[in-house]
Simulated assay, not measured.
Amino acid sequence: MNPNPLKILVLFYSQHGSTLNLARQIARGIESVPGCEAVLRTVPKVSAVCEAVESSVPEQGAPYAEADDLKHCAALALGSPTRFGNMAAAMKYFIDGTIPQWLGAELSGKPATVFTSSSSLHGGQESTLLSMMLPLLHHGMIISGIPFSESALGHTQSGGTPYGASHVAGHEGRAALTDEENELAFAQGKRLAELAVKLAA
């Protein structure tokens, strides 16, 4: 076991479990690469009410992300549900607060990837993934997607895009991933970790 593994941050926001399940599968892909450790972190809900009453520690699940998580990660996987073709407000709020990390170039040169979920098949997944890439490009990160050499990308009937892993929950809110969605999320995490290892070398 590597005493100093590369820590790869899987930072997500999830309300109903779909994006969380993608994050977990991406983490499995990351940890399939020797010398890499996935660090799951989330962000709190955001509103005038939430900011007044939200606990500083989540009641369950992944801890909230802190500045040091960004500073010390070797790579970043960023995930959010789709909200009108964009990331959720909670994730946008967190990202908007990373000006100190931007000024310090703390993420510059590190690989990154993005993932999302939506309730409908044409619910804005690709525009969400593309919009999530924009602040990462401003941070100087190296964006990684999913190549078509991953066969599941060519025959998925649900989620999965070359821009990043995705999940279609349907209007009944299915959080469980399909076989293809699982396969693509795992491949995306593995690819991110492999890039982090190469860059670290």
Results as ranks from 00 to 15, higher is better:
A52H: 12
N86E: 05
V43M: 07
H139N: 12
Q15C: 09
A75M: 02
R41S: 07
S14K: 02
M87G: 04
H16N: 09
A176I: 06
A89M: 08
G124Y: 02
N182H: 11
E183S: 14
S14V: 11
S127H: 03
N182P: 01
P162K: 12
T161D: 10
V168D: 01
F94H: 07
A176V: 13
S18L: 01
G79Y: 00
P5R: 05
Q101M: 08
L9C: 06
L22R: 04
L6V: 08
E183A: 11
A74G: 10
L76E: 03
E180H: 14
E31T: 07
Q101S: 06
D179Y: 07
L40R: 11
A75S: 10
D69C: 04
A65K: 03
E66R: 15
N182G: 12
I146E: 01
I142E: 03
L107P: 05
L107R: 04
G109M: 03
S47C: 10
V43E: 06
I95W: 01
I143C: 10
Q25K: 13
V168I: 14
F148N: 15
L177E: 03
T156E: 05
A176L: 13
M141D: 09
F94Y: 12
K110M: 06
E126P: 12
S32I: 02
R174P: 00
R28G: 04
N2V: 02
V33H: 08
A176K: 13
L11P: 10
T19K: 02
I95V: 14
P58N: 11
I26P: 05
D68P: 02
P147I: 09
E180V: 11
Q188N: 08
S56C: 09
E172D: 15
A23L: 08
L130W: 02
E37H: 14
A23S: 13
T116S: 14
T82L: 00
H72K: 15
L6S: 10
A152P: 01
L22H: 07
G164P: 06
A193S: 04
E66V: 13
F148Y: 15
G189T: 07
D69P: 02
L153Q: 08
S118Q: 08
Y93A: 14
L20T: 14
H138F: 13
L40S: 05
S18F: 00
